[in-house]
Design a protein around this nucleic acid. Sequence first.
DNA 1: CGCGCGCCATGTCAAATGACACGGACCGTT
DNA 2: AACGGTCCGTGTCATTTGACATGGCGCGCG
Lengths: 273, 273
Amino acid sequence: MADSDNAKTTRPFAQAAVLPDGAAPQQPGSGDRVPCRQCPLVGRRGLAPPDEGQRAWIESFKSSEVRFARGEQVLRQGGRATRLYTLLEGVLIRYRLLEDGRRQIVNFLFPGDLVGLQAAFDAELTHSVEAMTEARLCAFPRDRFFDLAVSHPKLSFDLTWMAAREEAALEDHLVSLGQRNAQERLAYLAVFLVQRGVATGVVREGVLRLTVTQSQIADMLGLSLVHTNRSLQSLRRKGLVDWTLSTIAVPDIEAARSFAQMDGDPYIPRPYI
Amino acid sequence: MADSDNAKTTRPFAQAAVLPDGAAPQQPGSGDRVPCRQCPLVGRRGLAPPDEGQRAWIESFKSSEVRFARGEQVLRQGGRATRLYTLLEGVLIRYRLLEDGRRQIVNFLFPGDLVGLQAAFDAELTHSVEAMTEARLCAFPRDRFFDLAVSHPKLSFDLTWMAAREEAALEDHLVSLGQRNAQERLAYLAVFLVQRGVATGVVREGVLRLTVTQSQIADMLGLSLVHTNRSLQSLRRKGLVDWTLSTIAVPDIEAARSFAQMDGDPYIPRPYI
DNA sequence: CGCGCGCCATGTCAAATGACACGGACCGTT
DNA sequence: AACGGTCCGTGTCATTTGACATGGCGCGCG
């Protein structure tokens, strides 16, 4: 039921992979385990540093490291995953397919984000997760998930925190789809992505390098492909957002935020798991 | 910034309160504390029963019980709450206001739901919460929140579970706003509400008694009031959904689910907090 | 009773968005 | 060089949805 291909929007395919930070791509597979001590997440802006005991415990918890190329599926809607992931590097999308092929992209995931929390509770997955760039994830076995709460309360607290943050992000998206028109939604999404990029150290000179097709934008914002295209051009003419296949630029974040009526703090530090 | 009143849709006002289960309303205030032993939530369909140690601990955690009348605000957008709530009885809505008065209702809350998790993390609230019916909440002090993870890992686990469930609900709503047309959205919302009502024992003979104005429906689904009205009538003529001011009836849930392209398990038991 | 008010219904027209069709740029493969 | 694939741009028209105006109905209230 989750694989119809007659959607009104075309399905994404693997394409030239883009690494968010310019790192060299390596062969896929689950080899070369990196010790948590050298975890690339530590030290990034926007991530609170973990304490030492915490790190040691996480290391013992970690089971393996996995890589995906752009376009590959990390999690499949309708399935049950046995592992919980932390995104180390790259960008993912989470989306849901309806039976007739309509697709709703629910959120973008950046380094530090949790992947598959639903699966950790033994629920059937309501969405798929796919790599937008070459990506590296850190995997934890699900069955040891409950141990976490017992042996490391701080981590468990952080986990709840992350779930609450993810929920807050969905709330933002929901407001966008419900109340904003096409151009406002586009401005909102561009700002959202750039800010997430900044927080995870993936933005250079105000420009986020990330290849997103207009079809994906449309499926995130609930717009048709054509209307997305036209609205994007209009925003470009206004100088608010310049969004190409491989880059997203918002010259004046404040102007764009005000255009889209976004309020609230843009930067909230995330805990480290 | 959160109080503009010039919205294109009218603001809800207090009106004849409706109790979901026919209980007699009592005077507002925070008096007459009910021991958790007699918690009205226990034994309801859809709630997993707590074990004894857990209950005792929750009882020590509980600080007070609060009541609200229809139309009263439980939490205010932009503020910081110092308490975390569990909804004992009644129905609430959670909504966000934009500066120009547009309103997006983010979710409906039913007995057993957590209220104010964001606030528990000391974040500024991004939404308001308002009572749709006479409501009773059970309040916990925020500063003791962290103790929970330490002393009762199972509860902490449940908390994460609840946050994940709430996130899944928002994902459903997001799919609705992004991919479904007006009538599908209405059918979806009606089914969603009836099913939540069933799960919390608030539905009688396939009909949910809950007063929701068309303006509130419109603000939940991102539709104009007028269009909501017309689409509602069309659904009624089709025999799919009969939604009046004070009742929601879905004669054939399966038909409505299929009309709205809903899939996945409708009933998932919730833990007890 | 008459009034104000919240809510729902409906008519008419306008605006936003979607559907379909086509062309063109780019790029890897043969 | 020709081909097929993906993606972006644009023209034309259809559909969905929104805006505005108006009336009706029930209900609490002085």
